[in-house]
């Protein structure tokens, strides 16, 4: 096959392979800050990748570039073999296949819990209202907030809101789910209820990219840990390898600061 791109001929020729998200040579600046530097990252179908690193290392930005909430300056991002399109209908279609869960939940404040979960199905997937509601209720039950369906987001606890946000993303039947520090805004006693839902998802085979500070989750649910610092991927390893035997000094330093108390 005479591909246009010759840099990675084999992968390009077989877009339906196991690779779902492929970032190659991605760079991004915020003004003078080079927030993503030559990022190469491949996420396979069904893989759970946890991105950790100190604040300001670019891990949230990395997560947000995958559905183009942040644009990139150079490089290439492909999802299921297709490059990320420019802003417009194509991009909207692609985003509907990429679920996203935010640090601050971002549930639609003027809509009920049920409406939050049916909106995307009805407006993007064009599902009829009845089917969408049945599915929404099933998903809300699955994440344990079925009883709250008719309330508004502000009436729920943070943990409940985040579980609704997960249900809202799942309602679109995404190919991959992005979690941008999903537990960072939660009170400590609510973190576990969200992590349990995420762990269940991981067991069900969902492809997940999780930016988090929850090392316990990284250990138990991740297939791979990506450690970022200063806009670069410093280290990639299995959780066992990474936590018991980090190779880079930067990772050793980071782990010594967070694991010793």
């Amino acid at each position: 096959m005479s591909g246009v791109s010759v840099t990675k001929g084999v992968e390009d020729a077989a877009p339906a392979s196991g690779d779902l998200v492929v970032l190659s040579n991605v760079n991004k600046h915020f003004g003078a800050l080079h927030v993503l530097q030559d990022i190469d990252l491949t996420i396979a179908r069904g893989e759970v990748v946890v991105v950790i690193g100190p604040s300001g290392s670019g891990k949230s930005t990395l997560c947000r570039t995958i559905n183009r909430l942040e644009t990139i300056d150079s490089g290439d991002i492909r999802i299921d073999g297709k490059p990320l399109p420019q802003e417009g209908k194509e991009l909207a279609r692609l985003r509907s296949d990429v679920g996203m869960v935010f640090q601050s939940f971002n549930l639609f404040a003027h809509k009920t819990i049920l409406e939050n979960v049916t909106l995307g199905q009805i407006k993007v997937r064009k599902t009829d209202k009845k089917t969408a509601e049945d599915k929404a209720r099933a998903l809300l039950d699955r994440v344990g907030v079925g009883a709250q369906a008719d309330k508004y987001p502000a009436q729920l606890s943070g943990g409940q809101q985040q579980r609704v946000a997960i249900a809202r993303a799942l309602a679109m039947e995404p190919k991959v789910m992005l979690f941008d520090e999903p537990t960072s805004a939660l009170d400590p006693e609510m973190i576990n209820e969200v992590l349990e839902v995420m762990q269940q998802l991981a067991r069900d085979g969902m492809t997940m990219v999780v930016v988090t500070h929850e090392m316990g989750f990284a250990r138990s649910a991740a297939n791979r840990v990506v450690f970022m610092a200063d806009g670069r991927i410093v280290e990639e390893a299995t959780p066992d390898q990474f936590f018991s035997n980090p190779r880079s000094d930067r990772a050793k330093d980071f782990l010594s600061k967070i694991l010793h108390h």
């Binding site: 559905n67 909430l69 209908k89 909207a92 279609r93 692609l94 985003r95 509907s96 296949d97 990429v98 679920g99 996203m100 935010f102 601050s104 971002n106 549930l107 639609f108 404040a109 003027h110 909106l119 995307g120 407006k123 993007v124 946000a165 809202r168 993303a169 679109m172």
Partner: peptide, 27 residues
């Protein structure tokens, strides 16, 4: 309207007009 509202709507696959009319303007 917090910027996260529009981001969540865009991330869901809504178009600019949908984000504006369904999420941002009502609030």
């Amino acid at each position: 309207v917090p910027v996260g509202q529009a981001e969540a709507a865009r991330a869901m696959g809504l178009s600019f007009v949908q984000v504006l009319t369904l999420i941002v303007l009502p609030q």
